[in-house]
Design a protein around this nucleic acid. Structure first.
Length: 568
RNA sequence: GCGCCUGUAGCUCAGCUGGAUAGAGCAACGGACUUCUAAUCCGUAGGCCGCAGGUUCGAAUCCUGCCAGGCGUACCA
């Protein structure tokens, strides 16, 4: 279409569709021809003669705005979208590349909370985005199933559980265990000797004491039952689980090798340490180079030692090209060190490890603290949202036409979609101030708003037989009003937005894009009838346009893990 | 002290690889349902883009300094 224009020029959109369908900024040519961008734009506009495709060329300041023949403009894109369907916007840019997305990493001593939901929503969205760009994605969950915190719940249950189980009490397993974690925290304030007992239990666990291991397995089993239910409800999927109980001793061999190769050194306390480069880390309070300990003097490992081992394990297990860690921003320092150490150890792939860091979720009262019970529980929040959605659905169905099953299904899709969208609509680096009132809203920049636009389209398509005639015979040249143009322009953006979202590891780009697309549709919908358009030809053309819109909305929402409904 | 992140409308945020008059949502006010789903749409109002310099034809965007908030700063995970 623009073969006649120099290639370095970028094609964008004018601020208003009235000005033209495409805009070409002439800035790059200014230097080359020693003329102002505006002069060049005028020159091009004068030279470029309209033809069958390009209907009008106008210079507007430094831009050349082009108007394109409607049949080409609309027909091209709508036909392509409808034809490609779910493949629209995808690419094979990452073909043959294997990428692991590690996310969630829950502890098995308490239920999931709002922070986990943000992590999970991000993990799933990023995975989908990478899949949509042709990557082979392995979704991994590194379960933190051992350690002193797990023993706390275990000890409390042993002491005060009286042999009860989640079944006997009718409580979801993870919540059941979490209650004992809270119980431990309460009791230990009164009786500090419990702390010694917990340490003892941890030692017994590490020694493989059968009783302790049995208790551990049983209680973790309860937690997994609970987690599995929440995963299913929130739409979290994993291809592989790593358990810290299997991996916590990893890394020692590599570190030993690193010592021999002088990657690590020993400090005055006998710790095995890695000295951090000054350029990236500066110096500490006493003006010394900063260090990170990778082994204690007694040879026991630390968080980072395990992570070194696990990183290598993951690469070897799955032959990865990229390894992504979805972990909160408070661990940026840790991952910076980890990747640096891996590189120092000679692993070239360390450069292909990424920490997808995301900001905290703050509550109105402050940061979430599980021990103080000041958290937003994941299950509670989802239940609450689903209930609100249900109330809305029932209000819209006063005659009670919907089956209970249908109401349940819709409530879940809407409620869960609202939570995911709320957590994904801001970029990951941004911390979220969790506003309960705003989070439960279904109006405006929300998931349900986007789902609603999709459902409205389905409502129209349901009432007709699409295509009413052969797709090729639809006369798209009839389209071209402002709302149609703006909607079309939005539809054309998906591939580019997906590409940017993947490059930045930023699902919020998709969320924003989908919202804008839904809005463009609603604006069109409110102003122009589809089925009752002036004539049959126009009806068909508009049906094509909204059919394409439905494809884009569904695709975009699915990319960020939000499901769609044909009726709302 | 050092490192990273953040600062844009009353509130929550887009925009940040420099380009057309800085955009949305919420909240406020006013309008549109005998018309394909009003979970919608239209309108009004609301901005020294933290501050000060610099680079540039052009800066919310890049650079420097400062101010404010958050996170982290090995021997917890």
């Amino acid at each position: 279409m623009f073969g006649q224009l120099p290639q370095q020029l970028e094609i964008g959109f004018p601020p208003s569709a009235e000005m033209g369908h495409f805009a070409v900024g002439c800035f790059p040519l200014a230097k080359q021809f020693h003329k102002s961008p505006a002069e060049i734009a005028q020159l091009i506009a004068d030279r470029l003669k309209p033809d069958t495709v390009i209907e009008q060329v106008t210079a507007a300041g430094p831009y050349v705005n082009l108007k394109i023949d409607s049949e080409v403009l609309f027909g091209d894109l709508c036909r392509r979208i409808i034809h490609q369907d779910a493949a629209y916007g995808t690419s094979d840019a990452g073909r043959d590349k294997r990428v692991m997305v590690e996310y969630l990493a829950p502890n098995t001593n308490k239920p999931l909370h709002l922070g986990h939901l943000r992590n999970g929503a991000l993990g799933m969205a990023v995975s989908s985005m990478f899949e949509a760009t042709g990557h082979r994605v392995v979704k991994a969950n590194l379960v933190n199933d051992r350690g002193v915190h797990i023993c706390k719940s275990m000890l409390a249950w042993q002491r005060w559980g009286n042999g009860t189980t989640p079944e006997s009490e009718g409580i979801k397993g993870d919540h059941f265990v979490g209650n004992y974690y809270v119980r431990y925290s309460r009791e230990t304030e009164k009786d500090h000797r419990l702390e010694d007992e917990v340490q003892q239990m941890l030692q017994q666990w590490e020694a493989g004491d059968p009783q302790t291991v049995k208790l551990w397995k049983m209680m973790n089993g309860w937690v997994y039952d609970g987690f599995t239910a929440t995963y299913r409800r929130f739409g979290l999927e994993f291809d592989v689980f790593y358990y810290e109980s299997d991996t916590y001793k990893l890394g020692k061999d590599v570190i030993q090798q690193g010592i021999e190769n002088k990657v690590f050194s020993t400090d005055s306390n006998g710790n095995t340490v890695f000295v951090l480069p000054e350029e990236a880390f500066g110096r500490d309070k006493s003006a010394e180079l900063k260090k990170v300990t990778v082994l204690r003097p007694d040879g026991t490992s630390l968080y980072i030692s395990q992570d070194i081992g696990t990183a290598i394990l993951k690469i070897n297990d799955h032959n990865l090209d990229y390894s992504i860690y979805v972990v909160g921003s408070e661990q940026e320092y840790h991952f910076k060190c980890l990747f640096l150490i891996l590189e120092a150890l000679g692993y070239a792939w360390a450069r292909n490890c990424y920490h997808l860091s995301y900001g905290m979720v703050y509550l109105p009262e402050g940061k979430m603290k599980s021990r103080e019970g000041k958290i937003v529980d994941a299950d509670d929040l989802l239940t609450e949202m689903i209930k609100l959605a249900e109330a809305e659905i029932r209000q819209r169905d006063p005659e009670g036409r919907l089956s209970e099953n249908e109401i349940k299904n819709r409530s879940e899709v809407i409620g869960v979609g609202a939570v995911k969208f709320y957590l994904l609509r801001v970029r990951p680096a941004q911390s979220i101030n969790f506003d309960p009132a705003e989070s439960i809203s279904f109006d405006g920049f929300t998931g349900p708003y986007c789902q609603y636009a999709y459902a409205r389209i389905c409502g129209i398509l349901e009432k007709t037989h699409w295509p009413r005639q052969a797709d090729a015979d639809v006369d798209y040249s009839l389209l071209g009003n402002m709302e149609e143009l703006q909607l079309l322009q939005q539809l054309s953006r998906l591939p580019g937005e997906l590409k940017k979202a993947v490059e930045d590891f930023n699902p919020s780009k998709i969320a924003v894009y989908i919202f804008n697309t839904a809005k463009a549709f609603n604006q069109f919908y409110n102003k122009h009838p589809v089925l009752k358009a002036e004539n049959e030809q126009l009806v068909n053309a508009r049906l094509g346009l909204i059919r394409a819109t439905a494809v884009v909305l569904k695709k975009g929402l699915n990319l960020i893990g939000v499901e769609v409904l044909e009726n709302m």
